[in-house]
Nucleic acid binder design. Structure first.
Lengths: 190, 190
DNA sequence: TAATACCACCTAACATTGTTAGATAAAATA
DNA sequence: TATTTTATCTAACAATGTTAGGTGGTATTA
């Protein structure tokens, strides 16, 4: 009797459609316009159904943050597999953040908004990956890797956030500035 | 007939009390809990009165951002008056941002949230002040000052935002990391 | 097969929100 | 005193998050 598995799959599909609906609305009208009713409308159900999959709006938003982190981690891991030169890896990891903000603006906003607390486990994992890159990059062992990773992470986020805020993500000059800042950072640590 | 001026002053006082009320609620319950009705309640008026001073909620929020920027600019100007060594000035300017986030957490959140567009004129003025400090700091003239200021600004904000998000503003170790990052930055540019 | 339990889903309501139109009553002016 | 202006309020609108409880069909059991 595989019908129980089919049900499971259908449930998963609905859950997924809720997440997609929320993202779609956010892309089109911004997160402030995302309401449980609009989501329900879009998936052609009534609001209480949404509450069967997510305890409340905050719960849904947290899941959406996880979606963002999963994409970032996936990009990071494929990136280090394709590239062995640590300097190039770090540059690619930096650009990945930029591209993430371009390709998934709604997720970027959610994951990196000051209002929302970090999902620690996720951030730690991402930092570990970048930590491994930086470890190879620098020669002298007098500086704490953790500090360097945190420094890198904050720098990247600071720049990308500013680009988002000032609507400069597609500005070539600004992107050039981004590259230069990464270069400056790398020069500074090795 | 000075009554017209008194009226003016009273109006100014009410406007100010609206701003204060909004900040108070934000400090106690977060910005998502700030409503026009709660503000009206707190200043002992009815909601429509608030709309006589601010076109709408967004308008009020923008004014609140300006309040934040005014504080920052004031701090920056007094800071450069008291200190002539550019390196120390830059460190102080950096710490000022940190303290701003501690002393006015609600304003920090508003001014630096990714959701809200920057108020360009304000940001440009702040960057000009910091630009003057950095100009004195570095010797070689091959690098663009604007780039360096932007780099500094994004780095500082990236770190402070992260501290806010992870609730580490009062963490001494994290603050030490902040100092080290500034030092690293300064070492890199001069 | 009939009765029962369960499941998916919905209706309808609650309090709270941003915002506005229009009323009221006091103060200022004529 | 009559009229205009000003300050303020009441009451409503539609939209929001969220929940209690109903409905009608499907599966399970007697």
């Amino acid at each position: 009797m595989g019908s129980i598995e089919r049900k499971q799959r259908e449930k998963e599909a609905i859950r997924n459609s809720i997440i997609c609906a929320a993202r779609e609305i956010a892309v089109q009208e911004g997160w402030q316009a995302v309401s449980m009713r609009k989501i329900a409308d879009r998936i052609e159900y009534t609001p209480p159904i949404v509450y069967e999959y997510f305890k409340n709006k905050e719960d849904l938003f947290k899941e959406l943050c996880l979606v963002g982190h999963r994409i970032i981690r996936k990009e990071l891991t494929t990136l280090i597999q394709q590239q062995s030169d640590p300097e190039k890896s770090l540059i690619e990891a930096s650009l990945m953040h930029w591209n993430f903000a371009i390709n998934h603006p709604e997720l970027y906003q959610l994951v990196f908004s000051v209002e929302r607390p970090t999902i620690n486990e996720e951030v730690i994992q991402e930092m570990q990956i970048v930590g491994n890159i930086i470890k190879k990059l620098k020669k002298e062992d007098n500086e704490d890797i953790k500090d360097l990773v945190l420094n890198w992470s904050c720098l990247i986020n600071g720049i990308v956030s500013f680009a988002v805020k000032t609507d400069n993500l597609k500005n070539i000059e600004f992107r050039e500035f981004f590259r230069k800042s990464i270069t400056r950072y790398i020069k500074g640590i090795k």
